[in-house]
Design a protein around this nucleic acid. Structure first.
Lengths: 228, 228
DNA sequence: CGCGGCTTTGATGTTCATCAAGTAAAGTGG
DNA sequence: CCACTTTACTTGATGAACATCAAAGCCGCG
């Protein structure tokens, strides 16, 4: 009778262990593993079998696909509380995309079988997963549509605001990715991403110190993002 | 004791009423409504409250968003057996997308409350919904990435092949949408969609009779789609 | 027949990708 | 710690791809 399940104190408990009995919880807690990753480490790899249900406890990761021309397309940046393996876990036996750390990260992993068993046995738990999954896929789709309807400047502005508003909640932040990855996210070339950034800098809208970005004229940037 | 639930004979029974008891089934069957739509009718409208869980029995629909510049972006074409309201039902109280018929269609609607109740009570049923939802969102995301990495010609070729292979399963078919809608789907202008089609026609790759398209050189079109 | 919407074509200009070259920064081995 | 290599970043020049604008043809419908 292990009374000391550390999940009891996990800040994600409410999110994930919602609506399950203490027995069920104990069982999950015993089969779960925490993993630490450095920047650049793969958490999941495209086409590899899905074994764990993974969520991010801390850090930041990018979800991307490598298409058959060898190029990478980034589809999402996941932050803590996001379920990293949520998109294809229930429809495929292998990952449809790769997940890589862009900041030091910690994940909590539960064997996918355990989670599936629990879903089958507990509808309330299933409902929670459904809600979370719906949220994540909705976000991914919406973001891709938002990016798609903008031009180069609008897209770059959108990304900067995304990091400032949603990820770091601070107008000045250190970009966890390089220029090439910004390009892979917004579907433009590295050179043109740089050109847009330089323009913003010359116009006094942002300041650039290597990877550190400071948004000086927030409203102007917002306007450019809304297409100006 | 109504022994005559018509769902018993519904071809979608296996898909949706999987793993539920005959009592549960009877209850769903009694609260469900079938609706018929003409081409151009709205099935769901963006920002309107979600009341029903909807799936498509027959026909063809487009899912799209109207962004704040008033332009429409098509994100998916749903065909029978697809759950039309599957993307945001569990995370939002209003639709994130509009759904409009592009062919005469029939839907089966079940009050969302009923479905949620059933999910909460029956994990196996929930698992089925999860799988379906995962499949749909995976498809939407994958398709958008596939389109994004192609140029004009590649995108138009991709759409034609999509209709031929996935929707109509026939190299010649009648396009259910106009040129503008193709453009809204692939993120290009109407004029350029037409130019690409005309090129394909002049090169003898396809034949065009108004909305009827006949793919003559399938392999060539495939090559163009894979970027050539 | 005439009107409005859809389609098509052409001309023009803008936006963006590509190619090339150079600078800065960061890692590597002696 | 310094030369060396590699990787990231930056700028410029050029051409291709695409959007925009304008106009005309087509087709269905009242």
């Amino acid at each position: 009778m292990n009374q000391e399940c550390s999940c009891e104190n996990c800040e994600l408990k409410e999110l994930f262990f919602h609506n399950i009995s203490s027995n069920e919880m104990m069982s999950l807690c015993n089969s779960r593993i925490e993993r630490n990753y450095e920047k650049g480490d793969y958490i999941n790899e495209q086409n590899k079998p899905i074994e764990d249900f993974t969520y991010l406890k801390s850090g930041l990761v990018k979800l991307f696909v490598t298409n058959n021309t060898g190029k990478e397309q980034i589809l999402y940046f996941a932050k803590p509380f996001d379920f990293v393996s949520l998109l294809s876990v229930f429809s495929h036996s292998t990952y449809s995309y790769s997940v890589m750390c862009i900041e030091e990260s910690t994940t909590c992993n539960i064997p996918i079988k355990e989670v599936k068993r629990l879903i089958n046995e507990n509808g309330k738990f299933a409902m929670g997963i459904l809600e979370k999954m719906s949220t994540v896929s909705d976000n991914v789709i919406k973001e891709s549509l938002e990016i798609r309807r903008r031009n180069l400047r609008g897209r770059v502005a959108y990304v900067l605001l995304h990091f400032a508003d949603n990820i770091y909640k601070n107008p000045s932040f250190e970009l966890p990715i390089n220029r090439k990855e910004i390009a892979e996210y917004i579907g433009m070339t590295t050179e043109n991403v740089i050109r847009a950034l330089t323009e913003f800098r010359k116009d006094g809208i942002i300041k650039i110190f290597g990877k550190v970005i400071e948004i000086v004229q927030y409203d102007t940037l917002k306007q450019i993002s809304e297409h100006g």
